[in-house]
Design a protein around this nucleic acid. Structure first.
Lengths: 253, 253
DNA sequence: CGCTTGATTGATGCCATTCAACATGGGTGG
DNA sequence: CCACCCATGTTGAATGGCATCAATCAAGCG
């Protein structure tokens, strides 16, 4: 078994020409002090098993904008997110982008048990991953059914969330999309002492999640602000002033 | 362990007022002559295990339009599709529908290892299912890792397909949506001797898959016909005349 | 300070929806 | 077998929501 992390070195700033920017290696750490030890897919493993798994992989540091996996590439890597936020995205032939998922600390990324990576994985913030060669991970998973079960649980949850998002993409208006997005972020992200959420996404990225243009997102945000539903703080800060009214605008089932 | 198939009796004609129409019980069959024995999730089980699994479940016949599981209901049933086509759908608060998946023979439906059924499951054609109480199925799966592995594989594939569909919903034009849909159906469905595909879906259902209105679907189909790309045969028959041109219209990556 | 990048706002146009009328075809009963 | 009916599908015209194009504004940075 060779350890091939070359693909990470294709990482590039989003949209910029490819630069040889290797993901920084952080050295091998044990799992004992890992922040996500109890929430990631390794949570159900005992100490010994977890050590065995950690020997397969290694920690890697990513900068915001770096891409770890490319849509359509052969699937050679999978990973657990230790820290940070990343996007999963697909592209049409002429370059239109759709973000198909956003992952946070303790989430799992990559395509185990499959030949191709179906979507790109790009860091939105600086991030740390616990990166495994797919083949080795697949073997480990097949022989540790507690891990595989947890992976199944996670995948089933992802599928549910993804399908719920299809209702938004296919049937909701721009207003409803933005309202749903804001409440979704409010649920996942921490609020600072002034009640402000710091979005890990630019307007363009929000547009790519919601299937809208940047201008429409901006207009909807301004409208919500004008109606006293939210307040905007700098480029990425949002404070929700009237969660009930926002909830009413989501057209939730 | 009680065997509770009551939910099936809530099955109703699509959109019609609820009628007490029990799913027809077909009696217990062995797996030996099952059409999908080698393709469904039970494919990797040996004869003995498969018999054990089949004792947990039973065959059920559905009529087109009957709904087996309701969005939001507690998850008490899962099933393998033996024959026929079914839709998975979610609804917004005000009744807008989005079809989040279409399943065929040998596919798996329902939500194992979870409390809620996240979407409704409705027969589009007459169909036969191999239906299991979820709790019993979950137990069986947990103790048969080959089955669980296959379920994982299937779920990962579903997730890939679903995410690919998000690109269509969020970023494609009506023309591109319809072209993509037609090629997708051509791949999955059999062609009769005149080269005609019989769609298992009404125009409304196609619209609910693509996030469009019935009129837009109809117009796009008529346009494609006018341009000599397809021919229409009756309400649900389609013949693809120029697959290349259709492919060009999909904006595929 | 000027330059660059990201966000907002405005003006205009187009594509999909909406509302409405009409066509088709499959099924039923005389 | 045909007339009739109802559900489904098609076509037309008008509207509107979102995209597009473009200008302006705000922040960060050398």
């Amino acid at each position: 078994m060779t350890f091939d992390f070359d693909l990470v070195q294709k990482a590039q700033d989003d949209g910029a020409p490819i630069t040889a920017m290797p993901a920084r290696e952080c050295g091998v750490h044990g799992c004992d002090h890992c922040h996500v030890r109890d929430h990631a897919i390794c949570a159900d493993l005992d100490g010994e098993e977890c050590t065995a798994l950690s020997r397969i992989g290694r920690r890697v540091q990513l900068q915001a904008g770096q891409t770890v996996m490319w849509e359509g590439d052969s699937s050679t890597l999978v990973a657990s997110v230790i820290e940070g936020t990343l996007k999963l995205s697909t592209h049409s032939g002429d370059g239109r982008e759709q973000i198909v998922g956003v992952v946070y600390a303790s989430d799992f990324v990559g395509r185990p048990f499959g030949a191709r990576t179906p979507h790109s994985v790009t860091a939105l913030t600086d991030a740390r991953l616990c990166l495994y060669p797919r083949a080795a991970f697949d073997n480990f998973a097949r022989s540790h059914s507690r891990l595989e079960h947890r992976l199944l649980q996670r995948t089933l949850d992802d599928l549910d969330r993804t399908r719920a998002w299809m209702l938004l993409l296919g049937r909701k208006s721009a207003r409803e999309k933005v309202a749903t997005f804001l409440l979704d972020m409010a649920r996942r992200l921490p609020t600072n002492d002034e009640g402000v959420i710091e979005l890990p996404l630019s307007r363009q990225q929000i547009a790519d999640i919601l299937g809208l243009t940047i201008e429409t997102v901006s207009r909807q945000m301004s409208d919500l602000k004008r109606h006293g539903v939210i307040a905007l703080a700098g480029r990425r800060g949002v404070r929700i002033l009237d969660a009930d009214k926002l909830e009413d605008m989501t057209a939730a089932s």
